[in-house]
């Protein structure tokens, strides 16, 4: 009797859990998971998008090894992520700290910093390319006239500066959103903690490192995972700003996969590229989750 009750209770619990999951899971499985699995399976196939699909074995992966563009785009992807993730975190955290101060017009200023996140990418790309235009842009004009730099960077038109330019615009655009997440995190820190620390004679700096930063770790954890994933699959911004150029200077993995699929009609190879991307991101994410217990504290 007792045992039976237990199992049915367990069974019930499971049913309840599934009922919570189901509405989302059905949609997710049908419209995302199945196409994803299909797309990843394509990495073992030859497909031009129209004719019959044929089995290719590991051919697509062997091709990756000798593909120079793949190597370049892989390095570029790491470059972009290594630049964007830490800088965005620092900028958005700094902003959140500043905008958490009791100052006048705080809401308006927050909205201003949130502005870029909302703007349409087509317009943003055009505007930034113009502002950073090597010869006609206001930024280079200031660099030349005010700071007397004879040869200012040629920004998106130069092989060396194109990636930093994209990184800057990306930070500009997304900072506001992550700032919001940090702001929410900051509100959750109980004030008593600071008061207690003040009584113990802790300074502002100490408060920041001993209380604020540790209390914000869940936010930082979330932000870093989301940022890493979105950086590795960066596409839109680069596509509209530089198209992967000049040459292949900003060609990242997804841009390469896209070109292979929609310009060369090699969907199998394109899937192989994405599978590599997928594995990299998954590894990083799993490592982040593993390390979660070490530095993230849920109070």
């Amino acid at each position: 009797m007792n045992k039976k009750g237990n199992t049915s209770l367990l069974y019930n619990k499971r049913l309840v859990a599934y009922s919570f999951l189901l509405p989302n899971f059905i949609g997710f499985a049908v419209f995302t998971l199945i196409p994803v699995v299909f797309a990843l399976a394509l990495s073992l196939m030859n497909w031009d998008g129209a004719n019959e699909i044929t089995f290719a074995g590991l051919k697509n992966f062997r091709e990756l090894i000798s593909d120079e563009t793949f190597r370049i785009s892989l390095l570029n992807t790491f470059y972009y992520s290594a630049g964007t993730v830490p800088l965005t975190i620092i900028c958005s955290l700094g902003l959140a700290l500043l905008l958490n101060q009791p100052i006048k017009g705080r809401n308006a200023i927050r909205a201003v910093y949130f502005f870029p996140y909302v703007a349409s990418l087509v317009a943003v790309a055009v505007v930034w390319n113009m502002i950073l235009n090597p010869t006609m842009g206001p930024v280079n004009e200031i660099l030349q006239k005010v700071f007397h730099i004879a040869k200012p960077p040629r920004w998106s038109a130069s092989v060396d500066w194109a990636m930093p330019t994209v990184i800057i615009v990306s930070i500009w655009k997304n900072m506001g959103y992550y700032m919001i997440i940090y702001l929410a995190g900051l509100q959750g820190i109980p004030r008593e903690l600071y008061e207690a620390a003040k009584v113990d004679g802790a300074g502002n700096l100490q408060c920041f490192f001993r209380i604020t930063l540790p209390m914000l770790t869940p936010s930082t954890f979330f932000v870093s995972i989301m940022l890493t994933i979105s950086c590795f699959k960066i596409f839109d911004l680069i596509f509209v700003m530089t198209g992967g150029g000049p040459g292949r200077a900003t060609n990242v993995l997804v841009v390469h996969a896209y070109n292979v699929a929609f310009k060369n009609f090699n969907f199998g190879y394109s899937s192989a590229i994405s599978l590599v991307l997928f594995i990299i991101v998954l590894c990083i994410t799993i490592i982040q989750f593993r390390m979660e217990k070490k530095w993230v504290s849920y109070f």
Binding site: A39, V254, Y258, S274, T285
Partner: peptide
């Protein structure tokens, strides 16, 4: 495992599976 599936698909760029999805 299920959660890993969810996270895993976040990591896949949409451009990769948009054709299979469209066909469906």
């Amino acid at each position: 495992f299920l959660f890993l599936c969810y996270i895993g698909t976040i990591a896949i760029p949409w451009q990769v599976y948009m054709v299979p999805q469209y066909i469906m």
